[in-house]
Amino acid sequence: MKNLKKFAALGLSAAMVLSLAACGSGTKNTTTDTTAAGTEEAAKTEAAGDTEAAGDKAAAGGDVDKSQKLIIYTNSGSNGRDAWLKEKAGTAGYNVEVVQIQGGDLANRIIAEKNNPQADMVFGLNSIEYEKLKTESVLDQWEPSWAGDVDMTLGDKDGYYYPIVIQPLVNMMNADLQNPPKDYTDLVNPEWKDQYTILNFGGGTGKTILASLLVRYRDDNGEYGISDEGWDFVKNWIQNGHMEVQGEDYVGNAISGTVPITEMWGSGVLQNQTERDYKFQIMVPEVGVPYVTEQMAMITGSKKRDLAVDFANWFGSADVQAEWMNQFGTIPCQPKAVEEAPADIKEFMDQVHPQDMDWAFVAANIDQWVEKCELEFLQ
C-alpha cells in the first residue's frame, strides 16, 4: 500500500497545478471539441425553458429535477470520457451535455461568457486556471458532500473548487526503443532529432511539461525568471523535437516507431495501453515528473446551481470515482476509490514520483513563457 499512500500524501506539492493533463489535442483518440456555436445554441435553448425549479426545490429541502439538461464544460472529456459520463449519468437519472474544450482554452472560454454563461459547471482544470476564474468572479462558492473525504490541501481553501483526480505527466516511449532517454536533457542530443512529440502549448499537458523544464533554470534576474541557459535549453528541446500536428495519431506514431516518444498524461498512458494492447516504456527523470490535480467548480450565473451540486456530489463520490478510475486509468483523490486501484494503476504509481515545483512561481510567469516559446522558438 506504500504506493497508494504516496499519492494520498501529495498535499501542497500538487495543490498549485497547471492546466489539466488529459487535454492533449490532435490524437485520433481525442474527441472533437464541441463548436462554440453549437454549444451556445444548445445552452440558449435550455435557458429559454428553464424555470429555476431545481433551485426552488433544493432550497425547500426537496429533490432537484434531474430531467433538466445540465451543461458541463471539461478538458477531461477526451478518449471517450464524455460519452461514458453522459451514459453513466443518464442511468443515475441526470440529463447532461458534456462539452470537451482544450485545457488552455477552457478558462478563457468561461471568462468570455461571463455576461452570458453557457455552462452550469466545469471540471478538469486545476488551481491556477481556477484562480484566474476566481479573479474574474465567474465561480460560485459551494461544498460537495464528499469534501471531508478528500485531501483539501489539493483544493481551494475558499471553497470555490474541489479535487477529484491526480495526473502525473510523462513521456511514454516505444517498447522496443533501445537505450531510451532518461531525462528531457537527453532529448536535445542529435540522436533524438524529430524522435519525440511535444504536445502543443495550448493544452494543459504541453504547457505543464514546458513549465516543469523551465523551473529547473530559475534565475530571478533572468528573463521572466529564467536563466539564459534555461532559455537556450528549451529552444533546443523544442526545435530538436516534433511539435504535435492537429489530427495526427501521436500515440500510434510512438507504437509504430515513426516518432517513438510522446508526452502523455497518466490516465492516457494506462488507457492507451489497454485499448491498443501495448506496453509503453516510461521516462521518469531523477527529478521526478510534474503532477496536476483536476478540480471541479460551479459557474456563476447558472440557473441550475442546485442540480449542478447534486450532480457533483454523485460524480465525485468514491463509488463513481472508482468506476471512472477503472474505465479510464485515472488516479482519484477519493482514498476509498484508490484502495480499489487495479494492478496496472498500482504499477504505474510505483514508477513515477512528483517533481518539486514552485507552482506560485509558475503561475506568475506561465503566460509569458508560453508566448515567448511560441513567438521565438516555434519554426
Rank of each mutant, 00 (worst) to 15 (best):
N3S: 12
K6G: 06
L18Y: 12
L20N: 03
A21V: 00
A22T: 03
G24Y: 04
T31K: 00
T32I: 02
A36E: 11
A37S: 01
A48P: 01
A53I: 07
A54L: 03
G55M: 04
G55E: 09
G55S: 05
A59T: 13
G62V: 02
V64A: 03
K66V: 01
S67H: 03
S67L: 01
I72R: 01
T74Y: 08
T74D: 04
T74C: 07
S76F: 02
N79D: 11
D82H: 05
D82G: 01
W84L: 06
L85H: 04
E87G: 06
G93E: 03
Y94W: 13
V96G: 00
Q100N: 06
G104D: 06
N108F: 14
N108R: 13
R109T: 15
E113A: 15
K114H: 09
F123D: 03
G124P: 11
L125H: 14
L125G: 04
S127C: 15
I128V: 14
K132Q: 04
W146G: 00
M152P: 00
M152R: 03
M152Y: 06
L154M: 10
D156C: 07
K157S: 14
L169F: 11
N171Q: 12
M173C: 01
N174M: 02
N174D: 13
A175Y: 08
A175V: 07
D176M: 08
D176C: 09
D176G: 09
Q178D: 11
Q178H: 10
N179C: 07
K182T: 15
D186V: 15
N189Y: 05
E191A: 12
E191W: 07
K193H: 13
Y196L: 01
Y196F: 02
T197Y: 06
N200R: 09
F201D: 06
K207Y: 07
L213D: 11
V215T: 12
R216E: 10
Y217F: 15
D220I: 04
G225V: 04
S227L: 15
E229Y: 13
G230D: 02
V234E: 05
K235E: 09
N236V: 10
N240C: 10
H242M: 05
E248R: 10
Y250F: 14
Y250K: 00
Y250I: 10
G252H: 04
S256M: 02
G257F: 02
T262F: 00
G266A: 10
M283V: 12
V284F: 01
V287L: 05
Q295K: 07
M296S: 13
M298T: 07
K304F: 07
N313Q: 08
N313M: 06
N313T: 09
A318S: 15
E323D: 15
N326A: 11
F328G: 12
F328I: 10
G329L: 09
G329Q: 05
T330S: 15
P332D: 11
P335K: 12
K336V: 13
E340W: 06
P342M: 08
E347N: 13
M349Q: 11
V352G: 00
H353C: 08
P354D: 07
W359Y: 11
A360R: 14
F361Q: 06
A364H: 07
A364S: 10
I366R: 03
W369M: 09
K372L: 04
